[in-house]
Simulated scan of single mutants.
Amino acid sequence: MASYALVFAILVALASSQVFASDPSPLQDFCVADNTSNVFVNGVVCKNPKLVKAEDFFYKGLDKPGNTANPLGSKVTPVTVAQLPGLNTLGISLARIDFAPYGLNPPHTHPRATEILTVLEGTLYVGFVTSNSNDGNKLFTKVLNKGDVFVFPVGLIHFQYNFGHTNVVAIAALSSQNPGVVTIANAVFGSKPPISDDVLAKAFQVDKKVIDYLQSQFWMDNN
């Protein structure tokens, strides 16, 4: 009997860990974000339901291409709770990603969300890298054509690259109202204040002059 109780306790603990690993479930029909509130909570404060309007659940403009005239040749147009208040507590968001020829959405992670990406136009080379293991960090890649879908597991480093001569458009859905983005190069070499070049030189096993050069570059954000 004790063994059954132990198994039950373990299953409950595992189920709980899955629940707390993503956005919490809503406790009412909706909790439209009140972006004017000065109260800080884990998420966004709810707007008075009596003041909610249909516009709180509406976003217009994903039909318009993002401006890819930048060094990366890509532009992410996010639709998170910051742009669409009605997403608050619903645990989802999305983004349009535009790529010029040879445009790159550089290696990055979403600390709070899994991403599922669909190519609407063109061809993309995509991939993600697994976390550290005894077998190293395994790279999974795929070439996606129009209508193809690929998933990037939560928290893992991933990228998308347009290696063709035409523009590419993709839509990404994410399992968080506020998935967050950590662009690896920007975070490592463009942090403010900068990470010590002694630390980075040892981490990357290169001369400090290389690190100093990389830290002197402009690390742009395509979001």
Rank of each mutant, 00 (worst) to 15 (best):
T77G: 01
D63Q: 10
N88M: 06
F30P: 06
K75M: 03
P65Q: 04
P65L: 05
L72M: 13
V39S: 14
P78W: 14
V45A: 09
T68C: 10
D34F: 13
F57M: 03
P71F: 01
V52D: 14
V52W: 04
L72E: 09
F40K: 13
P65M: 05
S25G: 10
G73T: 13
P49K: 08
V81T: 12
D63N: 11
L51I: 06
T89L: 09
C46Q: 09
D56A: 04
V39K: 15
D34V: 13
F57I: 02
V79G: 02
L62T: 05
Q83H: 14
C46S: 12
F58I: 08
D56P: 04
S74C: 06
P85G: 13
K47L: 14
C46A: 12
K64N: 09
S37L: 08
T36W: 07
A82M: 15
P26A: 06
S37P: 09
A69G: 03
N35D: 08
N67V: 02
G43S: 15
L51C: 06
C46Y: 10
P78A: 06
G61W: 02
V45E: 12
N70P: 08
N70L: 01
L27N: 07
V39Q: 15
G73H: 14
I92N: 08
D29V: 13
L62K: 02
T77W: 00
V81L: 06
G91F: 11
P78D: 10
P71A: 05
K60Y: 12
P71I: 00
C46V: 12
E55M: 05
L94N: 08
N70S: 00
N67M: 01
K64A: 06
S74L: 01
Q28R: 15
L72D: 05
P78H: 12
E55G: 01
K47S: 08
G61Q: 03
K60D: 03
L72C: 09
T89H: 02
V32D: 14
D56E: 05
S37N: 11
T36A: 14
A33P: 12
N35P: 01
N38W: 11
K60I: 04
S25M: 10
T36G: 07
P49W: 08
V79F: 02
A82S: 15
I92L: 12
S25K: 13
S25I: 11
E55V: 06
G91V: 06
S93K: 12
S25A: 13
T68W: 00
P71W: 00
N38V: 05
G61H: 08
S37V: 13
L84F: 02
D29E: 15
L84Q: 04
L72I: 03
L62E: 04
C46G: 08
A33F: 07
A54S: 11
K64G: 00
I92Y: 13
P71C: 01
P78G: 05
S93G: 11
C31Q: 08
P78V: 11
N35Q: 12
D63Y: 03
S93Y: 15
G86N: 07
